[in-house]
Amino acid sequence: MEFQPTIISFLCNWCSYTGADLAGTSRMKYAPNIRIIRIMCSGRVDPTFVLKSFREGADGVLICGCHPGDCHYHEGNYKCLRRFKLLHKYIQQMGIHKDRLRLEWISASEGRQFADLVDNMTERLMELGPSPIKEIMEIA
């Protein structure tokens, strides 16, 4: 059977989670590989959440927040972006491909963009194959 990646995703409540809900109410179809965790703001994404996801067997991690300037808490997404850049370098040092971790801005009206993003990331992860961490952690 073709490899099916699992993506753990952190979506902020105000923009991105609402955008994902909109994809649902608009009945837009996308790949079933994503698992969404709701947080209040992308600024809440602790680097350990991302590392934990990889450790538990995620093939990819997607963080979504409001577009720059639109964060419900003014600047949580900038804080997230700053942390993300460091984290991105760090995971590559650990041998995790950079395309396995993404940070994207999705507004409450961008249901289509969200659906396309999930499809696009799923496709890329299928090319990349299972996460190398799974081998180490002995996750099938």
Binding site: I8, R35, I37, R44, T48, S53, G57, I139, A140
Partner: peptide, 22 residues
């Protein structure tokens, strides 16, 4: 309501359905 423990356990739960080799 969004403690580390709560979110970490959510991550664990989400991936608990994937089988482990050992």
């Amino acid at each position: 309501h969004f403690t580390d423990k709560q979110i970490m356990s959510q991550i664990e739960g989400m991936l608990s359905m994937t089988k482990r080799k050992s």
